[in-house]
Design a protein around this nucleic acid. Structure first.
Length: 627
DNA sequence: ATTAGGG
DNA sequence: CCCTAAT
Protein backbone atom coordinates (compact mmCIF):
# COMPACT_ATOMS: atom_id res chain seq x y z
CA UNK A 1 0.00 0.00 0.00
CA UNK A 2 1.23 3.35 -0.87
CA UNK A 3 1.47 5.51 2.09
CA UNK A 4 1.25 9.06 1.18
CA UNK A 5 0.78 12.18 3.05
CA UNK A 6 -1.34 14.91 1.79
CA UNK A 7 -0.12 16.88 -1.13
CA UNK A 8 -0.15 20.51 -1.58
CA UNK A 9 -2.15 22.13 -4.21
CA UNK A 10 -1.07 25.60 -3.86
CA UNK A 11 -1.77 26.65 -7.34
CA UNK A 12 -3.84 24.93 -9.85
CA UNK A 13 -0.71 23.87 -11.50
CA UNK A 14 -1.41 20.28 -10.84
CA UNK A 15 1.55 18.23 -11.59
CA UNK A 16 -0.86 15.43 -11.32
CA UNK A 17 0.65 13.33 -8.67
CA UNK A 18 0.74 10.31 -10.79
CA UNK A 19 0.82 7.97 -7.94
CA UNK A 20 -2.62 6.63 -7.68
CA UNK A 21 -3.58 5.22 -4.43
CA UNK A 22 -3.66 1.54 -4.32
CA UNK A 23 -6.89 0.19 -3.08
CA UNK A 24 -6.46 -1.57 0.11
CA UNK A 25 -6.90 -5.21 -0.27
CA UNK A 26 -8.75 -6.64 2.58
CA UNK A 27 -11.23 -3.98 3.35
CA UNK A 28 -14.15 -5.85 4.28
CA UNK A 29 -16.59 -5.37 6.98
CA UNK A 30 -16.78 -7.76 9.71
CA UNK A 31 -18.66 -7.98 12.81
CA UNK A 32 -20.23 -4.88 13.95
CA UNK A 33 -17.86 -2.89 15.90
CA UNK A 34 -19.19 -2.15 19.27
CA UNK A 35 -18.82 1.46 19.94
CA UNK A 36 -19.67 3.30 22.98
CA UNK A 37 -23.34 3.34 23.12
CA UNK A 38 -25.23 6.33 24.03
CA UNK A 39 -28.47 7.16 25.46
CA UNK A 40 -31.04 8.45 23.20
CA UNK A 41 -32.48 11.74 24.12
CA UNK A 42 -35.80 10.18 23.89
CA UNK A 43 -34.83 7.78 26.49
CA UNK A 44 -34.48 10.65 28.76
CA UNK A 45 -37.66 12.22 27.76
CA UNK A 46 -39.65 9.15 28.02
CA UNK A 47 -38.12 8.14 31.20
CA UNK A 48 -38.83 11.34 32.85
CA UNK A 49 -42.32 11.56 31.64
CA UNK A 50 -44.55 11.80 34.55
CA UNK A 51 -45.87 13.94 37.19
CA UNK A 52 -44.28 14.20 40.49
CA UNK A 53 -46.38 13.62 43.40
CA UNK A 54 -44.94 14.31 46.68
CA UNK A 55 -46.73 12.27 49.09
CA UNK A 56 -47.44 14.16 52.16
CA UNK A 57 -49.45 11.83 54.18
CA UNK A 58 -47.74 11.16 57.33
CA UNK A 59 -47.99 7.78 58.82
CA UNK A 60 -46.15 4.75 57.86
CA UNK A 61 -44.32 1.89 59.28
CA UNK A 62 -41.35 2.91 57.42
CA UNK A 63 -38.27 3.08 59.45
CA UNK A 64 -35.93 5.98 59.04
CA UNK A 65 -33.12 3.61 58.61
CA UNK A 66 -34.65 2.36 55.48
CA UNK A 67 -34.94 5.78 54.11
CA UNK A 68 -31.44 6.47 55.04
CA UNK A 69 -30.49 3.42 53.15
CA UNK A 70 -32.39 4.67 50.22
CA UNK A 71 -30.56 7.89 50.35
CA UNK A 72 -27.28 6.18 50.58
CA UNK A 73 -28.18 3.98 47.74
CA UNK A 74 -29.24 6.81 45.61
CA UNK A 75 -26.05 8.60 46.25
CA UNK A 76 -24.07 5.56 45.54
CA UNK A 77 -25.78 5.17 42.27
CA UNK A 78 -25.15 8.68 41.48
CA UNK A 79 -21.54 8.44 42.11
CA UNK A 80 -21.27 5.37 40.05
CA UNK A 81 -22.98 7.08 37.24
CA UNK A 82 -21.07 10.25 37.52
CA UNK A 83 -18.36 9.14 35.22
CA UNK A 84 -20.69 8.50 32.42
CA UNK A 85 -22.69 11.59 32.80
CA UNK A 86 -20.43 14.33 31.87
CA UNK A 87 -20.86 17.44 33.81
CA UNK A 88 -23.45 15.90 35.92
CA UNK A 89 -23.86 18.00 38.93
CA UNK A 90 -23.62 16.13 42.11
CA UNK A 91 -26.78 14.70 43.36
CA UNK A 92 -28.65 15.64 40.34
CA UNK A 93 -28.95 12.23 39.07
CA UNK A 94 -32.25 10.66 39.21
CA UNK A 95 -32.55 7.01 39.49
CA UNK A 96 -35.69 6.16 37.81
CA UNK A 97 -37.05 2.86 37.14
CA UNK A 98 -39.09 3.07 34.10
CA UNK A 99 -39.72 1.75 30.78
CA UNK A 100 -41.16 3.02 27.66
CA UNK A 101 -44.06 0.98 26.85
CA UNK A 102 -45.97 0.30 23.80
CA UNK A 103 -45.11 0.81 20.25
CA UNK A 104 -41.63 1.82 19.70
CA UNK A 105 -40.96 1.33 23.30
CA UNK A 106 -38.02 -0.40 24.64
CA UNK A 107 -37.46 -1.61 28.02
CA UNK A 108 -34.44 -2.92 29.63
CA UNK A 109 -33.62 -4.85 32.57
CA UNK A 110 -30.90 -3.15 34.38
CA UNK A 111 -30.03 -6.22 36.16
CA UNK A 112 -29.46 -8.23 33.11
CA UNK A 113 -28.30 -5.42 31.01
CA UNK A 114 -30.58 -6.57 28.38
CA UNK A 115 -32.81 -4.60 26.24
CA UNK A 116 -35.87 -5.40 24.47
CA UNK A 117 -37.19 -3.55 21.59
CA UNK A 118 -40.84 -3.68 21.48
CA UNK A 119 -43.12 -2.36 18.94
CA UNK A 120 -46.73 -2.84 18.70
CA UNK A 121 -47.21 -4.22 15.33
CA UNK A 122 -50.60 -2.76 15.11
CA UNK A 123 -49.26 0.69 14.93
CA UNK A 124 -47.88 2.03 11.78
CA UNK A 125 -44.76 3.27 13.25
CA UNK A 126 -43.92 3.23 16.80
CA UNK A 127 -41.54 6.05 16.62
CA UNK A 128 -43.82 8.28 14.82
CA UNK A 129 -46.42 7.48 17.26
CA UNK A 130 -44.25 8.56 20.01
CA UNK A 131 -43.45 11.72 18.28
CA UNK A 132 -46.94 12.56 17.53
CA UNK A 133 -47.94 12.49 21.05
CA UNK A 134 -44.90 14.10 22.30
CA UNK A 135 -44.90 17.65 23.26
CA UNK A 136 -41.89 19.36 24.46
CA UNK A 137 -41.48 22.37 26.45
CA UNK A 138 -38.05 23.37 25.46
CA UNK A 139 -37.16 24.90 28.66
CA UNK A 140 -38.17 21.94 30.58
CA UNK A 141 -36.15 18.98 29.95
CA UNK A 142 -33.95 16.76 31.84
CA UNK A 143 -30.31 16.40 31.90
CA UNK A 144 -27.90 14.26 33.65
CA UNK A 145 -30.56 12.08 34.86
CA UNK A 146 -29.73 8.59 35.54
CA UNK A 147 -32.28 6.06 34.97
CA UNK A 148 -32.46 2.52 35.63
CA UNK A 149 -35.18 0.89 33.86
CA UNK A 150 -37.89 -1.04 35.36
CA UNK A 151 -40.97 -1.82 33.59
CA UNK A 152 -44.31 -2.08 35.05
CA UNK A 153 -46.33 -2.35 32.00
CA UNK A 154 -45.89 -5.95 31.35
CA UNK A 155 -47.06 -7.18 34.60
CA UNK A 156 -49.78 -8.99 32.92
CA UNK A 157 -47.36 -11.14 31.11
CA UNK A 158 -45.68 -12.34 34.13
CA UNK A 159 -42.07 -13.06 34.53
CA UNK A 160 -40.37 -13.57 31.29
CA UNK A 161 -43.31 -12.17 29.52
CA UNK A 162 -42.98 -9.68 26.85
CA UNK A 163 -43.54 -6.14 27.67
CA UNK A 164 -46.58 -4.96 26.02
CA UNK A 165 -48.13 -1.79 27.05
CA UNK A 166 -51.24 -1.33 25.17
CA UNK A 167 -52.01 2.24 25.50
CA UNK A 168 -48.83 4.07 25.68
CA UNK A 169 -48.95 6.14 22.61
CA UNK A 170 -47.53 8.99 24.39
CA UNK A 171 -44.39 9.72 26.15
CA UNK A 172 -46.41 11.34 28.71
CA UNK A 173 -46.77 8.06 30.32
CA UNK A 174 -47.71 8.10 33.85
CA UNK A 175 -44.71 7.51 35.91
CA UNK A 176 -44.77 7.17 39.52
CA UNK A 177 -41.63 8.06 41.17
CA UNK A 178 -41.34 7.94 44.78
CA UNK A 179 -38.72 9.96 46.38
CA UNK A 180 -37.75 9.42 49.84
CA UNK A 181 -35.35 11.44 51.70
CA UNK A 182 -34.74 13.02 54.96
CA UNK A 183 -36.27 16.34 55.41
CA UNK A 184 -32.90 17.79 55.86
CA UNK A 185 -31.89 17.04 52.40
CA UNK A 186 -31.60 19.99 50.20
CA UNK A 187 -33.58 20.47 47.11
CA UNK A 188 -30.84 19.14 45.02
CA UNK A 189 -30.79 15.98 46.90
CA UNK A 190 -34.42 15.64 46.29
CA UNK A 191 -33.84 15.17 42.65
CA UNK A 192 -31.59 12.33 43.21
CA UNK A 193 -33.82 10.29 45.26
CA UNK A 194 -36.33 9.02 42.94
CA UNK A 195 -36.84 5.51 43.85
CA UNK A 196 -39.12 4.10 41.35
CA UNK A 197 -41.36 4.74 38.50
CA UNK A 198 -44.47 3.02 37.58
CA UNK A 199 -45.23 3.45 34.04
CA UNK A 200 -48.83 2.93 33.71
CA UNK A 201 -49.07 3.77 30.11
CA UNK A 202 -52.18 5.77 30.32
CA UNK A 203 -51.06 9.12 29.26
CA UNK A 204 -53.25 12.07 28.75
CA UNK A 205 -53.48 12.90 25.16
CA UNK A 206 -51.39 15.79 24.24
CA UNK A 207 -50.84 16.35 20.63
CA UNK A 208 -52.47 13.19 19.70
CA UNK A 209 -52.28 13.52 16.05
CA UNK A 210 -53.37 11.20 13.46
CA UNK A 211 -51.41 11.30 10.33
CA UNK A 212 -54.46 10.73 8.30
CA UNK A 213 -56.30 13.57 9.74
CA UNK A 214 -53.41 15.85 9.94
CA UNK A 215 -51.37 17.01 12.76
CA UNK A 216 -52.56 19.93 14.68
CA UNK A 217 -50.23 22.76 14.23
CA UNK A 218 -49.57 25.84 16.11
CA UNK A 219 -51.57 24.73 18.95
CA UNK A 220 -51.62 27.12 21.68
CA UNK A 221 -53.57 25.93 24.51
CA UNK A 222 -53.53 28.82 26.77
CA UNK A 223 -55.90 27.26 29.11
CA UNK A 224 -53.72 24.47 29.80
CA UNK A 225 -51.72 24.70 32.85
CA UNK A 226 -48.42 24.05 31.33
CA UNK A 227 -46.16 25.47 33.84
CA UNK A 228 -45.79 22.52 36.04
CA UNK A 229 -44.17 19.81 34.24
CA UNK A 230 -45.05 17.58 36.93
CA UNK A 231 -47.16 18.03 39.84
CA UNK A 232 -46.08 16.89 43.13
CA UNK A 233 -47.62 16.17 46.38
CA UNK A 234 -45.69 15.48 49.41
CA UNK A 235 -46.31 12.76 51.78
CA UNK A 236 -44.29 11.31 54.42
CA UNK A 237 -42.37 8.22 53.98
CA UNK A 238 -43.78 5.23 52.42
CA UNK A 239 -43.93 1.65 53.03
CA UNK A 240 -41.31 -0.30 51.33
CA UNK A 241 -42.15 -3.72 52.46
CA UNK A 242 -43.29 -4.90 49.16
CA UNK A 243 -40.64 -3.29 47.19
CA UNK A 244 -39.75 -6.58 45.80
CA UNK A 245 -43.09 -7.13 44.32
CA UNK A 246 -43.86 -3.76 43.17
CA UNK A 247 -43.99 -2.50 39.67
CA UNK A 248 -43.40 -5.38 37.48
CA UNK A 249 -41.16 -5.41 34.58
CA UNK A 250 -38.18 -5.13 36.71
CA UNK A 251 -36.61 -7.71 34.61
CA UNK A 252 -39.06 -9.68 32.64
CA UNK A 253 -38.99 -7.27 29.85
CA UNK A 254 -35.86 -8.75 28.61
CA UNK A 255 -35.68 -12.12 27.14
CA UNK A 256 -33.15 -14.19 28.81
CA UNK A 257 -31.94 -15.89 25.74
CA UNK A 258 -31.47 -12.87 23.72
CA UNK A 259 -28.22 -11.23 23.28
CA UNK A 260 -28.00 -8.27 25.35
CA UNK A 261 -27.80 -4.94 23.83
CA UNK A 262 -26.84 -2.39 26.26
CA UNK A 263 -25.80 0.94 25.05
CA UNK A 264 -24.33 3.27 27.50
CA UNK A 265 -24.89 6.87 27.63
CA UNK A 266 -21.78 8.76 27.03
CA UNK A 267 -23.42 11.95 26.12
CA UNK A 268 -21.14 12.84 23.35
CA UNK A 269 -21.95 14.13 19.96
CA UNK A 270 -22.10 10.99 18.01
CA UNK A 271 -25.34 9.95 19.41
CA UNK A 272 -27.10 10.15 16.17
CA UNK A 273 -24.85 7.88 14.34
CA UNK A 274 -24.53 5.46 17.11
CA UNK A 275 -28.11 5.43 17.89
CA UNK A 276 -29.17 4.86 14.38
CA UNK A 277 -26.81 2.10 13.63
CA UNK A 278 -27.16 0.54 16.96
CA UNK A 279 -30.80 0.29 16.83
CA UNK A 280 -30.75 -0.89 13.36
CA UNK A 281 -28.26 -3.47 14.15
CA UNK A 282 -30.01 -4.47 17.25
CA UNK A 283 -33.13 -4.94 15.32
CA UNK A 284 -31.37 -6.71 12.59
CA UNK A 285 -29.92 -9.16 14.94
CA UNK A 286 -33.18 -9.73 16.55
CA UNK A 287 -31.93 -8.86 19.88
CA UNK A 288 -35.37 -9.36 21.10
CA UNK A 289 -36.35 -11.88 18.64
CA UNK A 290 -38.88 -13.44 20.84
CA UNK A 291 -40.78 -10.29 20.79
CA UNK A 292 -42.40 -11.32 17.67
CA UNK A 293 -43.96 -14.15 19.43
CA UNK A 294 -46.07 -11.72 21.25
CA UNK A 295 -46.86 -9.63 18.32
CA UNK A 296 -44.37 -7.01 19.18
CA UNK A 297 -41.85 -6.97 16.52
CA UNK A 298 -39.58 -4.35 15.40
CA UNK A 299 -40.50 -2.89 12.14
CA UNK A 300 -37.27 -3.04 10.33
CA UNK A 301 -38.25 -3.34 6.81
CA UNK A 302 -39.72 0.04 6.84
CA UNK A 303 -38.05 3.33 7.17
CA UNK A 304 -34.64 3.47 8.48
CA UNK A 305 -35.44 6.53 10.32
CA UNK A 306 -38.26 5.08 12.13
CA UNK A 307 -36.11 2.27 13.15
CA UNK A 308 -33.42 4.48 14.36
CA UNK A 309 -35.79 6.28 16.46
CA UNK A 310 -36.73 3.30 18.36
CA UNK A 311 -36.21 3.93 21.90
CA UNK A 312 -33.66 2.06 23.79
CA UNK A 313 -34.24 2.12 27.39
CA UNK A 314 -31.29 1.08 29.28
CA UNK A 315 -30.26 0.39 32.71
CA UNK A 316 -27.73 2.67 34.13
CA UNK A 317 -27.44 0.97 37.39
CA UNK A 318 -28.37 -2.05 39.05
CA UNK A 319 -32.01 -1.83 39.43
CA UNK A 320 -33.23 -0.14 42.44
CA UNK A 321 -36.16 -1.67 43.95
CA UNK A 322 -39.26 0.16 43.16
CA UNK A 323 -40.72 1.74 46.11
CA UNK A 324 -44.24 0.84 45.93
CA UNK A 325 -47.51 0.83 44.42
CA UNK A 326 -49.40 0.85 47.56
CA UNK A 327 -48.51 3.81 49.47
CA UNK A 328 -48.21 3.19 53.05
CA UNK A 329 -47.40 6.42 54.67
CA UNK A 330 -44.50 6.41 56.93
CA UNK A 331 -44.51 7.69 60.38
CA UNK A 332 -40.87 8.31 60.21
CA UNK A 333 -40.15 11.75 61.29
CA UNK A 334 -38.39 14.09 59.01
CA UNK A 335 -38.87 11.86 56.07
CA UNK A 336 -40.60 12.93 52.96
CA UNK A 337 -41.80 10.65 50.32
CA UNK A 338 -42.15 12.25 46.99
CA UNK A 339 -44.10 10.40 44.48
CA UNK A 340 -43.74 11.27 40.90
CA UNK A 341 -46.72 10.27 38.99
CA UNK A 342 -46.87 11.20 35.42
CA UNK A 343 -44.20 13.49 34.25
CA UNK A 344 -45.63 15.52 31.51
CA UNK A 345 -43.57 16.44 28.60
CA UNK A 346 -43.90 20.03 27.72
CA UNK A 347 -45.37 21.44 24.66
CA UNK A 348 -43.86 21.97 21.34
CA UNK A 349 -45.22 24.22 18.72
CA UNK A 350 -44.38 23.99 15.14
CA UNK A 351 -45.20 26.27 12.36
CA UNK A 352 -45.13 24.65 9.06
CA UNK A 353 -46.72 25.37 5.73
CA UNK A 354 -49.88 23.57 4.94
CA UNK A 355 -48.39 22.14 1.87
CA UNK A 356 -45.72 20.46 3.84
CA UNK A 357 -46.00 16.78 4.23
CA UNK A 358 -46.69 14.89 7.32
CA UNK A 359 -43.31 13.37 6.96
CA UNK A 360 -41.65 16.70 7.00
CA UNK A 361 -43.60 17.63 10.03
CA UNK A 362 -42.43 14.57 11.80
CA UNK A 363 -38.90 15.31 10.92
CA UNK A 364 -39.30 18.78 12.15
CA UNK A 365 -40.57 17.60 15.44
CA UNK A 366 -37.80 15.13 15.66
CA UNK A 367 -35.20 17.70 14.97
CA UNK A 368 -36.47 20.11 17.47
CA UNK A 369 -36.95 17.60 20.15
CA UNK A 370 -33.58 16.08 19.74
CA UNK A 371 -31.81 19.35 19.55
CA UNK A 372 -33.51 20.39 22.70
CA UNK A 373 -32.64 17.26 24.46
CA UNK A 374 -29.11 17.17 23.29
CA UNK A 375 -28.53 20.53 24.70
CA UNK A 376 -28.85 19.18 28.14
CA UNK A 377 -31.46 19.15 30.76
CA UNK A 378 -31.91 19.68 34.39
CA UNK A 379 -34.63 19.63 36.89
CA UNK A 380 -36.20 22.60 38.47
CA UNK A 381 -38.42 22.75 41.48
CA UNK A 382 -41.32 25.04 41.80
CA UNK A 383 -43.11 25.55 45.04
CA UNK A 384 -46.34 27.39 44.78
CA UNK A 385 -45.25 28.39 41.36
CA UNK A 386 -42.06 29.88 42.62
CA UNK A 387 -38.87 28.47 41.45
CA UNK A 388 -36.53 27.31 44.07
CA UNK A 389 -33.19 28.34 42.84
CA UNK A 390 -31.02 27.65 45.77
CA UNK A 391 -29.94 24.11 45.57
CA UNK A 392 -28.28 24.31 48.90
CA UNK A 393 -31.38 24.95 50.80
CA UNK A 394 -32.71 22.10 52.72
CA UNK A 395 -36.14 20.95 51.91
CA UNK A 396 -37.23 22.31 55.18
CA UNK A 397 -35.77 25.66 54.41
CA UNK A 398 -37.44 25.57 51.10
CA UNK A 399 -40.61 24.77 52.92
CA UNK A 400 -40.93 21.42 51.41
CA UNK A 401 -41.72 19.67 54.55
CA UNK A 402 -44.42 18.68 56.89
CA UNK A 403 -46.73 21.33 57.96
CA UNK A 404 -46.27 23.27 54.81
CA UNK A 405 -48.47 23.49 51.89
CA UNK A 406 -47.10 20.82 49.73
CA UNK A 407 -49.88 20.75 47.28
CA UNK A 408 -48.09 22.76 44.73
CA UNK A 409 -44.72 21.33 44.25
CA UNK A 410 -43.86 21.18 40.66
CA UNK A 411 -40.89 19.79 38.93
CA UNK A 412 -39.75 21.14 35.68
CA UNK A 413 -37.34 20.11 33.07
CA UNK A 414 -35.11 22.81 31.87
CA UNK A 415 -32.39 23.14 29.41
CA UNK A 416 -29.05 22.86 30.94
CA UNK A 417 -27.03 24.29 28.18
CA UNK A 418 -27.39 27.94 27.85
CA UNK A 419 -26.00 29.19 31.07
CA UNK A 420 -23.58 30.93 28.91
CA UNK A 421 -25.70 32.52 26.32
CA UNK A 422 -22.69 33.63 24.49
CA UNK A 423 -24.24 33.24 21.16
CA UNK A 424 -25.78 36.26 19.75
CA UNK A 425 -29.47 36.57 19.92
CA UNK A 426 -30.94 36.21 16.55
CA UNK A 427 -34.42 36.47 15.43
CA UNK A 428 -34.67 35.64 11.82
CA UNK A 429 -36.71 38.10 9.93
CA UNK A 430 -38.60 35.40 8.20
CA UNK A 431 -39.97 34.35 11.46
CA UNK A 432 -43.61 34.66 11.76
CA UNK A 433 -44.88 33.96 15.14
CA UNK A 434 -48.49 33.99 14.36
CA UNK A 435 -50.22 31.71 16.66
CA UNK A 436 -47.67 32.41 19.22
CA UNK A 437 -48.69 35.87 19.96
CA UNK A 438 -49.41 35.32 23.54
CA UNK A 439 -46.30 33.45 24.17
CA UNK A 440 -42.92 34.70 24.65
CA UNK A 441 -40.45 32.67 22.76
CA UNK A 442 -37.77 31.65 25.11
CA UNK A 443 -35.22 31.05 22.53
CA UNK A 444 -34.91 30.35 18.96
CA UNK A 445 -33.51 27.33 17.42
CA UNK A 446 -32.21 28.29 14.13
CA UNK A 447 -31.11 25.47 12.05
CA UNK A 448 -28.91 26.91 9.47
CA UNK A 449 -28.46 25.59 6.09
CA UNK A 450 -24.85 25.60 5.28
CA UNK A 451 -25.54 26.49 1.75
CA UNK A 452 -22.31 27.97 0.82
CA UNK A 453 -22.99 26.61 -2.56
CA UNK A 454 -21.05 28.38 -5.14
CA UNK A 455 -21.70 26.56 -8.27
CA UNK A 456 -25.22 25.56 -7.95
CA UNK A 457 -28.02 27.69 -6.82
CA UNK A 458 -30.14 26.10 -4.23
CA UNK A 459 -33.18 27.72 -2.95
CA UNK A 460 -34.64 25.11 -0.78
CA UNK A 461 -33.46 26.58 2.39
CA UNK A 462 -35.39 25.97 5.44
CA UNK A 463 -35.48 27.77 8.61
CA UNK A 464 -36.53 26.26 11.75
CA UNK A 465 -36.95 27.92 14.95
CA UNK A 466 -37.89 26.33 18.08
CA UNK A 467 -37.84 28.16 21.27
CA UNK A 468 -36.15 26.05 23.76
CA UNK A 469 -35.03 28.02 26.62
CA UNK A 470 -31.41 28.63 26.29
CA UNK A 471 -30.74 25.86 23.98
CA UNK A 472 -27.54 25.75 22.19
CA UNK A 473 -26.09 23.27 19.95
CA UNK A 474 -22.48 22.59 19.78
CA UNK A 475 -22.19 24.47 16.62
CA UNK A 476 -24.18 27.39 17.53
CA UNK A 477 -27.09 26.56 15.41
CA UNK A 478 -29.27 27.25 18.33
CA UNK A 479 -29.29 30.65 19.70
CA UNK A 480 -30.44 31.92 22.92
CA UNK A 481 -33.02 34.55 22.75
CA UNK A 482 -33.99 35.33 26.24
CA UNK A 483 -32.58 34.64 29.53
CA UNK A 484 -35.40 33.22 31.38
CA UNK A 485 -35.72 32.07 34.85
CA UNK A 486 -37.21 28.79 35.55
CA UNK A 487 -40.26 30.50 36.77
CA UNK A 488 -40.70 32.55 33.72
CA UNK A 489 -40.07 29.57 31.67
CA UNK A 490 -42.85 27.77 33.26
CA UNK A 491 -45.14 30.61 32.59
CA UNK A 492 -44.46 30.70 28.94
CA UNK A 493 -43.20 27.43 27.95
CA UNK A 494 -43.93 26.79 24.39
CA UNK A 495 -41.71 26.15 21.55
CA UNK A 496 -42.36 27.52 18.19
CA UNK A 497 -40.95 25.92 15.18
CA UNK A 498 -41.90 27.73 12.08
CA UNK A 499 -40.83 26.05 8.97
CA UNK A 500 -40.63 28.41 6.13
CA UNK A 501 -39.94 26.72 2.93
CA UNK A 502 -40.89 27.43 -0.60
CA UNK A 503 -41.05 24.31 -2.59
CA UNK A 504 -43.27 21.80 -1.00
CA UNK A 505 -41.52 18.98 -2.63
CA UNK A 506 -38.22 19.88 -1.21
CA UNK A 507 -39.72 20.38 2.12
CA UNK A 508 -41.26 17.03 2.07
CA UNK A 509 -37.94 15.38 2.08
CA UNK A 510 -35.75 17.89 3.59
CA UNK A 511 -35.28 17.78 7.26
CA UNK A 512 -35.66 21.06 8.82
CA UNK A 513 -32.56 21.19 10.76
CA UNK A 514 -29.27 20.79 9.17
CA UNK A 515 -26.95 21.43 11.93
CA UNK A 516 -23.59 19.83 11.81
CA UNK A 517 -24.70 17.57 14.51
CA UNK A 518 -27.81 16.23 12.98
CA UNK A 519 -30.63 15.01 14.98
CA UNK A 520 -30.51 11.50 16.08
CA UNK A 521 -31.51 9.16 13.43
CA UNK A 522 -31.81 11.98 11.06
CA UNK A 523 -30.76 11.23 7.58
CA UNK A 524 -29.02 13.93 5.74
CA UNK A 525 -30.80 15.95 3.24
CA UNK A 526 -30.67 14.46 -0.16
CA UNK A 527 -29.11 16.91 -2.48
CA UNK A 528 -28.68 15.66 -5.95
CA UNK A 529 -25.51 16.80 -7.57
CA UNK A 530 -26.04 19.62 -9.95
CA UNK A 531 -24.45 19.68 -13.31
CA UNK A 532 -21.81 22.18 -12.28
CA UNK A 533 -20.98 20.01 -9.36
CA UNK A 534 -20.66 16.99 -11.54
CA UNK A 535 -18.45 18.88 -13.90
CA UNK A 536 -16.26 20.02 -11.09
CA UNK A 537 -16.05 16.54 -9.77
CA UNK A 538 -15.13 15.08 -13.09
CA UNK A 539 -12.51 17.64 -13.66
CA UNK A 540 -11.00 17.12 -10.28
CA UNK A 541 -10.95 13.39 -10.63
CA UNK A 542 -9.40 13.69 -14.01
CA UNK A 543 -6.58 15.52 -12.41
CA UNK A 544 -6.24 13.74 -9.16
CA UNK A 545 -7.47 10.28 -9.72
CA UNK A 546 -10.03 8.15 -8.03
CA UNK A 547 -8.32 7.35 -4.84
CA UNK A 548 -7.82 10.75 -3.38
CA UNK A 549 -11.21 11.96 -2.50
CA UNK A 550 -10.06 14.24 0.17
CA UNK A 551 -7.94 16.03 -2.33
CA UNK A 552 -10.73 16.05 -4.81
CA UNK A 553 -12.85 17.65 -2.22
CA UNK A 554 -10.26 20.24 -1.48
CA UNK A 555 -9.77 20.97 -5.08
CA UNK A 556 -13.31 21.22 -6.24
CA UNK A 557 -15.55 21.34 -3.24
CA UNK A 558 -13.52 23.03 -0.66
CA UNK A 559 -16.12 25.56 0.13
CA UNK A 560 -19.01 23.21 0.01
CA UNK A 561 -19.65 21.88 3.41
CA UNK A 562 -22.35 19.50 2.55
CA UNK A 563 -20.26 17.52 0.16
CA UNK A 564 -17.89 15.32 1.98
CA UNK A 565 -15.19 13.39 0.30
CA UNK A 566 -17.24 10.35 0.91
CA UNK A 567 -20.05 12.01 -0.95
CA UNK A 568 -17.75 12.74 -3.82
CA UNK A 569 -16.56 9.23 -3.88
CA UNK A 570 -20.10 8.00 -3.87
CA UNK A 571 -21.06 10.36 -6.57
CA UNK A 572 -18.22 9.22 -8.70
CA UNK A 573 -19.32 5.71 -8.18
CA UNK A 574 -22.76 6.51 -9.37
CA UNK A 575 -21.39 8.48 -12.25
CA UNK A 576 -19.38 5.55 -13.39
CA UNK A 577 -22.37 3.39 -13.06
CA UNK A 578 -24.53 5.85 -14.86
CA UNK A 579 -22.09 6.08 -17.66
CA UNK A 580 -22.03 2.40 -18.04
CA UNK A 581 -25.71 1.89 -18.40
CA UNK A 582 -27.98 2.78 -21.19
CA UNK A 583 -29.40 6.25 -21.23
CA UNK A 584 -32.86 4.81 -20.84
CA UNK A 585 -31.98 3.34 -17.55
CA UNK A 586 -30.63 6.53 -16.17
CA UNK A 587 -32.62 8.48 -13.72
CA UNK A 588 -32.52 11.87 -12.27
CA UNK A 589 -31.16 14.91 -13.87
CA UNK A 590 -29.54 13.80 -17.08
CA UNK A 591 -25.84 14.15 -17.28
CA UNK A 592 -24.46 15.12 -20.63
CA UNK A 593 -23.02 12.20 -22.43
CA UNK A 594 -19.83 14.06 -22.94
CA UNK A 595 -19.36 14.32 -19.26
CA UNK A 596 -20.12 10.69 -18.80
CA UNK A 597 -17.59 9.84 -21.39
CA UNK A 598 -15.03 11.76 -19.47
CA UNK A 599 -16.05 9.87 -16.41
CA UNK A 600 -15.46 6.58 -18.07
CA UNK A 601 -12.22 7.73 -19.51
CA UNK A 602 -10.95 9.02 -16.23
CA UNK A 603 -12.10 5.95 -14.45
CA UNK A 604 -10.35 3.73 -16.93
CA UNK A 605 -7.23 5.77 -16.82
CA UNK A 606 -6.92 5.93 -13.09
CA UNK A 607 -7.84 2.38 -12.48
CA UNK A 608 -5.14 1.48 -14.91
CA UNK A 609 -2.75 3.66 -13.02
CA UNK A 610 -3.60 1.87 -9.89
CA UNK A 611 -2.96 -1.41 -11.54
CA UNK A 612 0.42 -0.24 -12.58
CA UNK A 613 1.20 0.97 -9.18
CA UNK A 614 0.24 -2.35 -7.82
CA UNK A 615 2.28 -4.30 -10.26
CA UNK A 616 5.17 -1.95 -9.91
CA UNK A 617 5.03 -2.32 -6.24
CA UNK A 618 4.92 -6.04 -6.52
CA UNK A 619 7.86 -6.17 -8.89
CA UNK A 620 9.73 -3.75 -6.80
CA UNK A 621 9.22 -5.93 -3.81
CA UNK A 622 10.28 -8.94 -5.73
CA UNK A 623 13.36 -7.15 -6.90
CA UNK A 624 14.28 -5.86 -3.55
CA UNK A 625 13.76 -9.20 -1.99
CA UNK A 626 15.78 -10.98 -4.61
CA UNK A 627 18.59 -8.54 -4.54
C1' DA B 1 -9.23 11.36 9.53
C1' DT B 2 -9.32 8.80 5.00
C1' DT B 3 -10.28 5.32 1.80
C1' DA B 4 -12.83 1.56 -0.16
C1' DG B 5 -16.92 -0.89 -0.68
C1' DG B 6 -21.20 -2.90 0.37
C1' DG B 7 -26.03 -1.65 1.33
C1' DC C 1 -26.67 8.55 1.44
C1' DC C 2 -25.48 5.38 5.13
C1' DC C 3 -22.41 2.30 7.53
C1' DT C 4 -18.19 0.29 8.54
C1' DA C 5 -13.74 -2.14 8.09
C1' DA C 6 -9.21 -1.08 7.48
C1' DT C 7 -5.81 2.15 7.28
Amino acid sequence: MVVRKRLDYGSRGHQVPAMPRVPSSARGKRSARRKKDEMSPFDLLATVAGTLLVDHENSSNNAPSINAAALTYARKRKSVKAEQCDDAPPLKSIAVESCIAGSGGVCASPRQSNICLAENSSTRNGTDTVLESLTVKPDMLVRDSVFSCTKSCNRAHGVGGIPECESSRSLEATNQVQVQQPMDGDTTALYSLVSSVDLDGRPPALVSSDSSSGVPLCIHDKDRNTSPLCHAEARHAADRDDDENSSGCTHPCTMGNNKSYMPQYTGDSRIRKMFASKIRKAARNKMCGEMSNKGSKLNLGGKKISTTRQRVQRAMFKRQKPVRRHFTPSSAKGILTVRIKSFTIPELFIEIPENATVGSLKRTVMDVVTSIIESGLRVGVLLQGKSIQDDNKTLRQARICHGENLENIDFTLECEAGQSSSHGVRIPEEMDFHGADAMKPLAMVKCEEPFSETKAGYNNQQRVQASPNRVQSEHGSVHSLFETTAHEASASSQAIVPVASPSSEALAIVPVCKSKRPAIGQRRIRRPFSLPEVEALVEAVEQLGTGRWRDVKMLAFDNTDHRTYVDLKDKWKTLVHTASISPQQRRGEPVPQGLLDRVLAAQAYWSQQQQQVLSGKASGQACSSSC
